[in-house]
């Protein structure tokens, strides 16, 4: 094994992990505030990619406006993030909030989330059909190579965006008032409404953040792998959820590290073993990790009073 292949795989793993990390951030944000596993999140990612596709087609395919492609790309990302946030918030308003108001068992909300995901997936399949679509090439792919190691500009962009998104989120959570409120809710959900914090508004904000991260991941994903299909969010969503749990769900850093960890495991397993073993080894490692440290890498166990 020479160092060239090692570094090459390292870069691939960084890119692959970036997607997981961005999606896992959404899971962990919602979980931190609501203690809800938002199983529809993987499909929010899919919706983000499709909305991105829609905006990209509209912006490039018409004869009215001619914009440089890089502006189109940025507009696609931003518009898709905004539109997907609406989808996420709508889900919260229509499906989760009524249940929360009633104070039903947490499990029922989880099942509702799972079902919302199925509706998004199959609704898409019913409306747009099963045919795969290819995302228009908005950024011309250039490949740089340094002594046998190749890296494309898209790969650099994905990795850098993931890190920037993480830092921005971390700043929002640590430095702003609304971030403080989010942390406060996850710390003590009984006292927070008594302190005059508008819980519903915080929850909506959380969904906006999570969904826009998923949309960002979605558009980046189809830029790197330009194929869209209705079930694209299912597998990657489940895996990102696992990444979030491994990192310690509810912890931003945990989701980020967990995402990259899963990316690294998958890429390096595929590099050293037959690639069909990828899922097997990745999930076995996670199983062992969770058995040894049940709260995830960054999670902490809450003590129960008897």
């Amino acid at each position: 094994m020479d160092s060239q292949i090692l570094i090459q795989n390292f870069l691939n793993a960084l890119q692959w992990g970036s997607f997981y990390a961005l999606i896992a951030l959404g899971y962990t944000l919602v979980y931190g505030v609501l203690l809800l596993i938002n199983f529809a999140h993987g499909d929010i990612f899919m919706v983000g990619a499709y909305l991105g596709f829609f905006f990209a087609i509209v912006l490039t395919g018409n004869s009215l406006i001619h914009l440089p492609l890089w502006i189109v790309f940025i507009m696609t990302v931003v518009l898709s993030m905004i539109a997907t946030s609406f989808v996420g918030v709508t889900l919260e308003r229509v499906a989760y909030r009524p249940l929360r108001r009633k104070g039903t068992n947490r499990l029922y909300v989880v099942i509702t989330a799972l079902m919302c995901g199925l509706i998004l997936e199959n609704g898409n399949l019913a409306v747009f059909g099963a045919s795969r679509r290819s995302f228009p090439e908005l950024i011309e792919k250039t490949i740089y190579s340094f002594g046998g190691i190749t890296i494309s500009n898209i790969k650099i962009m994905v990795i850098v965006t993931a890190f920037v998104a993480f830092i921005v989120l971390e700043m929002i959570i640590r430095k702003t008032r609304i971030g403080m409120a989010m942390r406060a809710i996850s710390y003590d959900r009984v006292a927070v409404p008594l302190m005059g914090i508008p819980v519903d508004r915080i929850i909506v904000f959380t969904f906006v953040l999570g969904s826009s991260m998923a949309a960002l991941a979605g558009v980046l994903f189809v830029t790197a792998y330009p194929v869209l299909e209705p079930y694209m969010g299912a597998t990657i969503g489940w895996k990102a959820f696992i990444a979030a749990v491994v990192g310690g769900i509810g912890e931003i850093r945990g989701a980020f590290v967990g995402g990259f960890l899963l990316g690294f495991i998958e890429i390096f397993v595929a590099a050293f073993f037959p690639s069909t073993l990828r899922d097997l080894i990745a999930f076995s490692v996670l199983l062992v990790l969770l058995s040894v440290k049940p709260t995830g890498l960054f999670g902490f166990s809450r003590s129960t009073k008897i």
Binding site: W238, I242, V245, T276, D279, F283, L286, L290, G296
Partner: peptide, 15 residues
């Protein structure tokens, strides 16, 4: 966390 373990077992068996 247990939910995730069952999920992982499902994937492990299938894989």
């Amino acid at each position: 966390y247990l939910a995730i373990i069952t999920l992982a077992v499902n994937y492990i068996v299938k894989s």
